[in-house]
Design a binder for these strands. Structure first.
Length: 329
DNA sequence: AAATCGGGGGG
DNA sequence: CCCCCAGATTT
């Protein structure tokens, strides 16, 4: 068995992460949602600011959507923030402002799937459940030498293997985290650092020398390429932002217009490419100096305080801001 | 089962 | 450039 070796390794080598300092379901929940499909180092600053601004369930449940989006700006997968608030409202109404304690109840809440439910239940409440993320799939597929392609069935197999491997109750939280930490630091996707691995003696893939080929993942289809032209209307020192529709890509965030309007002068901005998971935008931007201001023109200060602009638009925003600031000197 | 939904860091 | 990340939800 490898559990003891893994736990010992975790105790000595685990990263010190701010969101592991409190055993508090609310903050653990926030950190787990934020960490979905996101590297830990990338979400740490967002997490600290979020907890500072919205320290408890009540504060989150009553947080205006605009403020929530601003706190999430640049993190991606913005429906996570929307679901957080939805979930907080449900918890205020049905669970006395707390998160439920079982994996099963947690999974009924918006934005909480099998992994996150398992993580909250085991880490915050010491429940005897697995928390299988991408790291754990990689670690277990190697430990057990699973050469089949990972699909919903093989993932269920792994969840069962993890469930059956759980140590005694007081170590379950650390064990689940240790599996992920091993995946993040040692059992990495390419060129795993097996020399430093505390459980290599138990690893089928290592013994067979095929650890670099596992897990076998489905190949994803190639990205669709879209040509996009955006127009940035400017009047004096104010910029026009267009709120995006409330569904689909970058829902409810602020971007620029895609229709040209009459103007007294225009400047072509530097082009750039923005890559999403499934789409590539080849972006052209034109700054249009308009003669009169209509609705939704905002100053730089206003934009940076209140309006959430996703990363795809930031290069244009930065250029426009510089041009405006130059003209005002 | 496949598509959608962001963004960035590392090799 | 490619890979994939402490995934969930919708189609």
């Amino acid at each position: 068995m490898f559990q003891n070796e893994l736990l010992k390794w975790y105790e000595n080598k685990a990263r010190k992460l701010s969101f592991r300092e409190k055993k508090d379901a609310y903050s653990i929940w926030i950190s787990e949602i934020m960490a979905q499909q996101t590297r830990i180092e990338a979400m740490l600053k967002y997490y600290n600011r979020f907890i500072e601004q919205l320290p408890d369930m009540k504060a989150l449940a009553s947080c205006p959507d605009e403020k929530l989006n601003k706190l999430w700006q640049g993190l991606g997968y913005y429906s996570r923030a929307k679901n957080l608030k939805k979930c907080a409202i449900i918890c205020m109404e049905k669970y006395d402002g707390k998160l439920p304690e079982t994996k099963e109840e947690l999974m009924k809440l918006p934005g909480i799937g099998p992994y996150t439910a398992g993580a909250i239940a085991s880490i915050a409440y010491d429940q005897r459940v697995s928390a299988v993320d991408g790291n754990v799939i990689r670690v277990f597929s190697r430990l057990y030498g699973m050469e089949e392609e990972i699909d919903s069935r093989t993932k269920k197999n792994i969840e069962k293997l993890v469930q059956d491997s759980l140590p005694e109750k007081e170590f379950i939280s650390d064990y689940n985290q240790a599996l992920m930490e091993l995946g993040a630091l040692i059992c990495i996707p390419k060129n795993p650092r097996c020399i430093s691995c505390p459980v290599k003696e138990n690893c089928v893939a290592y013994r067979k020398g095929i650890q670099g080929n596992l897990p076998v993942l489905k190949k994803k289809k190639e990205r669709k390429v879209e040509e996009k032209q955006f127009y940035i209307y400017v009047y004096k020192n104010k910029i026009h932002l267009k709120k995006r529709e409330n569904k689909g890509l970058l829902a409810n965030l602020y971007g620029f217009d895609e229709e040209r309007v009459p103007c007294v002068k225009e400047i072509e901005l530097k082009e750039h490419t923005h890559i999403f998971s499934h789409i590539q935008w080849n972006m052209k931007g034109t700054m249009l100096f308009v003669e009169q201001k209509t609705d939704h023109f905002y100053s730089i200060d206003e934009i940076e305080e209140k309006y959430a602009i996703p990363s795809a638009f930031v290069p244009f925003y930065t250029q426009v801001k510089q041009i405006i600031e130059r003209e005002l000197v």
